[in-house]
Amino acid sequence: MSTKMFVDNAKVMSKGQITIPKDVRKVLGVDPGDKVTFIVEGNVVRVVNAASYAMQVLQSQMLGTAESEGILSEEDVADFVTELRSEA
């Protein structure tokens, strides 16, 4: 699907379940067995790929950590990894 915006519908079943439409699953990058996260802001609900969302949250929480530890370049990262491996 090449468009950036589209509308799709799903029917809510008696137990509150829905089937995520195929085109929406494709956009979310979810397959059978994957999880989705519901983000509720007022009366607006966003559905996102749970793994992608978890990574975004982690990245935002870690923002600035490398700099505060003095890791400023790829060489610093390589040195840090080497140091960690030698401790193991």
Rank of each mutant, 00 (worst) to 15 (best):
T3Q: 11
Q61Y: 12
A66T: 01
I20W: 03
E87S: 09
S86H: 11
K35R: 15
M55T: 07
V36C: 13
A66N: 05
V27G: 00
M13N: 15
V12P: 03
A66Q: 04
I18Y: 05
K11G: 10
A51M: 04
S60K: 12
E74A: 07
R46N: 06
P32T: 08
K11C: 10
G42P: 02
T82P: 00
M55W: 07
V57D: 03
L28S: 03
V40N: 13
A54N: 04
E69C: 06
T37E: 10
K15W: 10
D31M: 00
G33F: 05
A66S: 09
A54M: 06
M55Q: 11
L84T: 02
V27Q: 03
E75A: 06
K22A: 14
P32M: 09
A10P: 06
F38A: 14
T19I: 14
S60H: 12
L84N: 07
T19M: 12
G70R: 06
I18P: 02
A78E: 14
F38Y: 14
M55F: 06
V45A: 07
K26A: 15
Q59H: 11
A66D: 07
Q59M: 14
G70M: 06
E69W: 04
R46G: 03
K11T: 15
K22H: 12
S86G: 03
D23L: 13
V47F: 01
P32A: 12
Q17K: 15
F38E: 10
G33S: 08
Q59L: 14
S86N: 13
L84I: 08
T3E: 13
I39E: 07
V47A: 02
Q56T: 09
Y53G: 00
G70Y: 05
A54E: 11
V47Q: 00
D31R: 00
M1P: 07
Q61L: 12
F80D: 02
D76N: 09
M13I: 07
M62D: 10
T19C: 08
K22Y: 11
D79G: 05
L84G: 09
T37A: 15
T82G: 03
D79W: 05
D8R: 13
D34Y: 07
V12H: 11
V40K: 15
L28D: 00
T3W: 03
K11S: 14
L58V: 07
Q17R: 15
Y53P: 01
L28M: 09
S14Y: 06
T3A: 12
A51I: 02
A66V: 01
N43K: 15
V24R: 01
A51H: 01
M55G: 04
M62L: 15
K22D: 12
F38W: 11
P21A: 06
D8V: 09
Q61F: 08
I71D: 01
F80L: 12
E75R: 08
K11H: 13
A78F: 13
L84Q: 10
Q61W: 10
A88L: 15
V44W: 05
V57Y: 03
D79L: 08
V12M: 13
E75T: 07
S68W: 02
K22Q: 13
V45P: 00
I18M: 10
Q17T: 12
I71R: 00
D76F: 04
G42F: 01
M13T: 11
V24A: 08
R25T: 08
